[in-house]
Write a protein that binds this DNA or RNA. Structure first.
Length: 290
DNA sequence: ATCCAGGGACGCG
DNA sequence: CGCGTCCATGGA
């Protein structure tokens, strides 16, 4: 059993990190700890007061390095928060609410499949589908007496037929997952190449070739797997909160997407992805508890 | 029953 | 190009 402890880590709150919509495979247990799977490692995270304790099984890589990389611990989020807080009171409020958010560095392949599944779907169901996908095509790992599953590899998932996928409850997304898996397998779209690209728009261009990846899904992948903080994924929640705060259109559904994209770009100065996370979490949590 | 969910593909003008 | 429509599924 590996162990790593953080003391007085700035900007780190488990609820904020795991409930802000960026990831789907972390679940809170009865003790309030979160357990999740990163690559081939099952990790448990416990937070009390000024301490964060990571424990887990990790065979293929250095435990501490994996944690520091995945949780983006070498980035100072206080600087982001300071910059964004200066913009207006809305940002100040949303950051106060989600002060412990960090952008996880998620695996590109897993992120692509996960967000294709997210299309016209809700978060609890997205999580269930990804679990079924992992339990069926992933690798079983035992941890503290429970079974966990790695996210399936490209090779493994490529063995699934459209019908196999449909049986997992994917709905109309079955064909998209099937096609995208094939395109990645045969390097029609090369993930290693995308990972090496510098330019955000070149990256997006490549991602948009994949079946089921449109503007919103591409931006989520850019933000959550490729660390592009200058993108602004617009979903129903972001549209809602942006309309409430800045646009005040009678019908939020009629807010023009391009206009909204430009507004975010101008307002959030290269940190629109961070702003999007604070706003999304803030608006969605308030609605939950309303 | 009807609506909605972290949208995208497709066809049309 | 911009816009409407359809797409499976399950929970509210």
């Amino acid at each position: 059993m590996e162990k790593y402890i953080l003391q007085n880590q700035e900007s780190f709150n488990l609820e904020h990190i795991f409930e802000c919509g960026q990831c789907f495979r972390w679940n809170k247990n009865s003790d309030g700890d979160y357990v999740g799977v990163i690559n081939k490692a099952v990790i448990k995270v416990k937070q009390d007061k000024e301490k964060v304790i990571f424990t887990g099984e990790c065979k293929n890589s250095n435990f501490k390095d994996l944690i520091r990389y995945y949780f983006d611990l070498d980035t100072n989020y206080s600087e982001y928060k300071e910059k964004l807080s200066k913009i207006d009171n809305n940002m100040k409020e949303s950051i106060k609410f989600g002060e412990g958010i960090r952008i996880l560095k998620q695996d590109l392949w897993e992120c692509i499949i996960s967000f294709i599944i997210s299309a016209n779907n809700n978060i609890p169901r997205i999580k269930k589908i990804i679990e079924r996908l992992s339990a069926t095509y992933g690798e079983k790992i035992e941890f503290e007496g429970l079974d966990y599953y790695t996210f399936p590899t490209v090779e493994r998932l490529s063995k699934a037929s459209v019908e196999d996928l449909r049986a997992l409850g994917l709905g109309f997304r079955d064909k998209r997952i099937y096609n995208t898996t094939k395109m990645i397998l045969n390097k029609e779209v090369n993930l290693e190449y995308i990972n090496k690209l510098e330019d955000t728009n070149r990256m997006r261009e490549e991602l948009l070739k994949l079946d089921g990846v449109g503007p919103k899904v591409a931006d989520c992948i850019l933000l959550f797997a490729l660390k592009r903080l200058d993108v602004f994924p617009i979903d129903v929640w972001v549209r809602r909160v942006m309309n409430d705060l800045y646009i005040h259109n009678e019908d939020e559904n009629k807010v023009n997407k391009n206009e909204l994209q430009k507004l975010a770009e101008d307002k959030f100065l290269g940190l629109s992805g961070m702003a999007q996370q604070y706003l999304f979490y803030w608006r969605r949590e308030l609605e939950k508890h309303a």
